[in-house]
Amino acid sequence: MRMSDRDPTQYRLCVGVMLVNGEGKAFVGKRIDNKEGDFWQMPQGGVDPGEDPGDAVLRELWEETGASAEHVQVIARLPEELFYDLPDNLKGKLWGGRYIGQRQAWYLARFTGTDAAIDLEAHDPPEFCEFKWVEPALLPELIVPFKREVYAAVVAEFESQLGS
């Protein structure tokens, strides 16, 4: 999961964000392309060539949630990237077959708007078909199994900063 001996060129550079509301609950969305299971995930996405990861966080948040920068305050970033490998049935199918997984810079951000400021169709095509706010401790249970270790690490790392 952490850098260790992994070759970073085999992993797609990505940002992820734990977006928490005033009640300390985390945003999760249900992916439109989810064909199996009842899985939910936090906003995440690739970093464009030459893009600063801090800028990518705000862009991804807007694309996936419609939340503008005026409703988002970035609070923290994990000190290390987290890695996950794709399961064998997905290797070679995503991202043009170029990567075996993702390396993610994770951020914690506070959402200061209301649910009316969330617009899942802000970007075409939308990523999520629905969203909800959940207790952060539940996040590892909601994500696809191959990302659970990453979500557990994100929750543990940000736990002390989740108060409202």
Rank of each mutant, 00 (worst) to 15 (best):
I32S: 08
D33Q: 09
N34V: 09
N34H: 11
N34E: 15
K35Q: 12
K35S: 09
E36M: 08
G37V: 05
D38F: 02
F39C: 05
F39Q: 04
F39L: 08
Q41H: 05
M42V: 14
M42Y: 09
P43Y: 02
P43A: 11
Q44I: 02
Q44K: 14
Q44T: 11
Q44L: 03
G45Q: 05
G45R: 01
G46C: 11
V47H: 03
D48K: 12
D48N: 07
G50L: 08
D52S: 11
P53N: 09
P53M: 07
P53V: 07
G54V: 04
G54L: 05
G54K: 12
D55W: 05
D55E: 15
A56F: 01
A56C: 10
V57T: 09
V57F: 03
V57G: 02
V57E: 07
V57C: 06
R59P: 00
R59V: 04
E60M: 06
L61M: 15
W62H: 13
W62C: 03
W62E: 11
E64L: 01
T65V: 04
G66A: 04
G66K: 06
G66D: 07
A67L: 12
S68H: 14
A69R: 14
A69L: 02
E70T: 04
E70A: 05
H71Y: 10
H71W: 04
H71P: 00
H71Q: 12
V72N: 01
Q73G: 07
V74C: 03
I75E: 12
A76W: 00
A76Q: 13
R77C: 14
R77H: 05
L78R: 13
P79E: 15
E81Q: 13
E81M: 12
E81R: 14
E81K: 14
L82A: 12
L82M: 11
L82P: 02
L82Q: 13
F83H: 13
F83Q: 06
F83L: 12
F83C: 07
L86F: 15
P87W: 11
P87G: 12
L90K: 10
L90S: 04
K91L: 02
